[in-house]
Design a protein around this nucleic acid. Sequence first.
DNA 1: AACTAAGTTTCAAATAATGAGACTAAGTTT
DNA 2: AAACTTAGTCTCATTATTTGAAACTTAGTT
Lengths: 267, 267
Amino acid sequence: MGHVTGDGTVGKALAVLDQVAAFGRPVRFSELLAQSEFPKPTLYRFVQSLTNQQMLAFDPDRQTYAPGIRLVRLAHAAWEQSTLAPIARPHLDALSKVVGETVHLAQLDNAHVLYIDKRNAANPVQMYSQAGKVGPAYCTGVGKVMLAFLDEDTINKVIAQQSFHIFTEHTLADAAALRSELDDIRTNGYGFDREEHEPGIICIAMPILSEGGRVLGALSVTSTTNRTTLAGLEAYVPILHETAVKVARDARNWSFPDYNTNQATGI
Amino acid sequence: MGHVTGDGTVGKALAVLDQVAAFGRPVRFSELLAQSEFPKPTLYRFVQSLTNQQMLAFDPDRQTYAPGIRLVRLAHAAWEQSTLAPIARPHLDALSKVVGETVHLAQLDNAHVLYIDKRNAANPVQMYSQAGKVGPAYCTGVGKVMLAFLDEDTINKVIAQQSFHIFTEHTLADAAALRSELDDIRTNGYGFDREEHEPGIICIAMPILSEGGRVLGALSVTSTTNRTTLAGLEAYVPILHETAVKVARDARNWSFPDYNTNQATGI
DNA sequence: AACTAAGTTTCAAATAATGAGACTAAGTTT
DNA sequence: AAACTTAGTCTCATTATTTGAAACTTAGTT
């Protein structure tokens, strides 16, 4: 996930942190070293520093490193202060209650979808446990509706960063297919996931746009092909739109980091 | 929250990150500077680097900094890999279903309680705790039961770090009162929160201990004095114990960072 | 006992961090 | 509207830290 090093030692150390997180499992020093651009002692010292700082956790039995508990603490503050979650919370609760299906709140993060909050149909838990998960933008409902309403330059840059990995037989295969889909979404004002990411999973997604038309995030209602159809999901358009408008209204007073001005998208 | 700098530039930068998080609200550069040990240009460069790295988010309208979205992504990995949450998840679900009250899963983090997971009551209590949230150890149910089963040396060091701030008329006022309470907890095998942190809020808490007797975390069932009593909560002891044993069993194969060997507790 | 691989330490050279001070921009007072 | 104040940004010589080749230690083979 293309982060810019070049912020000196800090940037390099955080790149190592990302590397550990990217493994998705506890990882040995030698595994990190094998794919690292840093020489052995340099990498070693970074890992040591990060472990001292509890940004990494070291398991002495297995001699493995994993992202550390300090991140959980820090992320709570980030989630409360730098995401739509606290603003959207009551509206997401209300939406969840009415539709009785899984609902998601997402934001864009470096050309990827970052899930910020969620309500399950069954157990109404709200927590970043489920938040913090990253997903592809080109084959999720929330991803596509957010892309659709970015400005042309940003769209191009974000599309260039998509992998277009084929997850199912319905996954959009290339930039052209995606662009055409984004046109449809702009026309309708909302979009679908037609089993593009997981077979049997469909969703309807609605962008959250500021009054100035800037993309703040997206909402979605997810279900399965066993339980409903795309046409069935379309019944949620009015309440989704209403919810998105309410969130945008409450977010008016709150200007949060502009996706278009971070160096990860190179703008 | 006493972190050890001295890991060079990395440690210093992370101290700044903690400082921003500690504010609990977006903060201006000058506010950071006022309470910083770093000279202006040094602090300035740290804040710039962290912002570039999206560990901080800058709001250009208000000229304020807040913990950044990258933390949310990283914390998801930490939560899944370095906490009891994934192991305890099914057991917490089951517990929540049976007791129908708010249940918490917590771990110790530098002499403080870190809430790792939560299930809301069917009949929701208005209370604000979530994963990633930090709380005091000396006046919460989960905090006290975890302290009780640490070894003597560690207890002493952790007690020395407690603030003993008086939240309610029932808050334990000093180390002596806490030590006496810990003795009771060791005798019973579980503990209570007797409105020590918030008026009207009571809980019963059970430690999660490894077979070797090491403290892994704690579980609690929380309710209000309107709905039940301490004696009423005591009915949950069997299922709490059973749940704690199951979590410990599933965690057997998983050795996670030892609280006793990080330099933040100075051991 | 010899070999191998993983992890750790050393130390001189190279590089990056440091911070006093100067500068700019924006807002406030006279 | 000029002088003043304050917050934020930049510069550059000095200083301190990072760097990494190489050597070493440890633990696990063969």
